[in-house]
Write a protein that binds this DNA or RNA. Sequence first.
DNA 1: CTGAAAGCGCTTACAG
DNA 2: CTGAAAGCGCTTACAG
Lengths: 341, 341
Amino acid sequence: MKKKLSISDIARSLNISVTTVSFILNGKAQEKRISDELVKRVQTFIDEVGYKPDSLARSLRTGKSNIIGLLVEDISNPFFAGIARQIEDNAYRKGYKILYSSTDNDLEKTRELIQMFRDRHVDGYIIAAPQGLEAELNALIEAGRPVVLFDRTVEGVDTDYVGIDNYRSTAEAVQMLIGQGFKKIGMISLASTQSQMKDRRQGYIDALAEHKLPEHLLEIPFTENGEEISAAIDQYLDSVNIDALLFATNYLAVNGLRAIYRRNIAIPKELAVVAFDDNDVFELSNPSITAITQPVADIALASISMLLERLTSPRRDKAKESQTEILNTSLKIRRSTGGTE
Amino acid sequence: MKKKLSISDIARSLNISVTTVSFILNGKAQEKRISDELVKRVQTFIDEVGYKPDSLARSLRTGKSNIIGLLVEDISNPFFAGIARQIEDNAYRKGYKILYSSTDNDLEKTRELIQMFRDRHVDGYIIAAPQGLEAELNALIEAGRPVVLFDRTVEGVDTDYVGIDNYRSTAEAVQMLIGQGFKKIGMISLASTQSQMKDRRQGYIDALAEHKLPEHLLEIPFTENGEEISAAIDQYLDSVNIDALLFATNYLAVNGLRAIYRRNIAIPKELAVVAFDDNDVFELSNPSITAITQPVADIALASISMLLERLTSPRRDKAKESQTEILNTSLKIRRSTGGTE
DNA sequence: CTGAAAGCGCTTACAG
DNA sequence: CTGAAAGCGCTTACAG
């Protein structure tokens, strides 16, 4: 393994200054009126010896890293894994790399992660934020590091956001259930004040209220693991009398289905079921499970596009107003609510 | 946002040299016999003003980045997402960050990724390698960047490896099917010469041969998307007469189940089914699907442990022999093969 | 015990 | 059109 070449090695070999090499490397040859002939000579030589500028040194000097920090709730959750995959594809295509981590919705952990990311001069952020992150997010933005939030907004933070209409999509699912004749509709949500959870709960509550139907809401703490969630839902099923059940996230639904199957409850005869976020499990379950489907690819694409726009636009545009993009969900009606698919 | 402090700001404020500050920062106070009193004074001040050394500058100087490169086939595949999650947890706990990417088993893409990672001075690598990556992997190792392979070995590359016994786990599944009375056993695998695929196919082939049973093997190119996979399997089901079917990966199984359900084939009455890699889909399907289960957490833990060991051990140990860790799978027998769970 | 200085590999204002 | 030099923020051999 030969030693890594540096820009001064190149300059020395070619008997020119590092300045000239650097200008050529950074596409400033025109601007600096370096002769076409010299440019060609340098480029040929660089290709020949396989020289690559050290991006770390460049970052130290310029303050830019071409790295994007991605903070999701949990990379092993199919919703977030799907988003991550699409963001990654787009970012790499534009020459950006992704440093990622799972927050577990843990505020302290997230703070540390942001500190570490800042420390690595991460250029910009795409974040599904836990509650209470206002100060850190605003500090990031003030420091000139653009932040795109997705999945949930954070009060007091004025920045780009990509999400869905949680209130309406949930309300529509409840209305669909009511339309099918279900009257005792329960909901399993997270005990969380995050915007997306609040909106999903409120959509459920208001849709019921409109028809003067009773609420049966269970809120489960985020930290509980799968088995604990199943147990909590099992207990809930003991205590309520319902004929339909709406889950506020995909993993609540997965663990809820475990509890339902264990109790040998017939879907949809004894209990109709609706999940939030579609995935293979719901499609291939028997009966298949109705799901409120988020447009994962579009969410990812909108998030990375907004971020790259901020990152690549000239300085003076940085202060432009923050954008919000609300994408459409679709309600996939399947057998679990009397559908035929 | 106040300007970021540097080590010389600290030194100046305290009227000492940057050397002393640096030694204290790096835990060399003892070794350099700096007075306890001074150490305390410096630490107190640093905490007070919230100074954090710039890790980029440190990396440039030391050649270490505390970043691990993780290359998986596809982060949205639950098997790899699960591994990624566990590796991440362990790495962050030890002060390492993760730069990740999905290779899509694409050799050219993977080469570029490795080049980009090297360029960022990534300290070490955990890789599920595509075919043909020998040269790049060996170059990495020669350059002193440890590499841990997982899921599949690469011929001609002598380095740490974590995996399972693909041959035996597949053979056992086939034997189980034979034991249950199935005699016309098919297999859907990838058209791939990767070690794990070859071993799974061979396990299937040899187990059948032992009982003088015929093969019904379909090999599907990696690049095909879900719909194409389902279609290929649908066609396969048209052309063979089988009573049991083994899938070589989780997404082959998921797409195969789609085809099977569409054809309204009764599981296990008309067709028994076994998947590779367990996940929620197989557990919650009705009937539930028998799966060869990989120990995801253990694979992740072994991989990151081996890498950290190389990364943190003193120089002279670097040349120590490469390790191989083969972990146990378990065959989860469910209703799709006549089980009762 | 502590400090002045070189150097990691770049970029860029300044000067010619 | 091109170059010498400062500086990004660290670490560490060398000297005292």
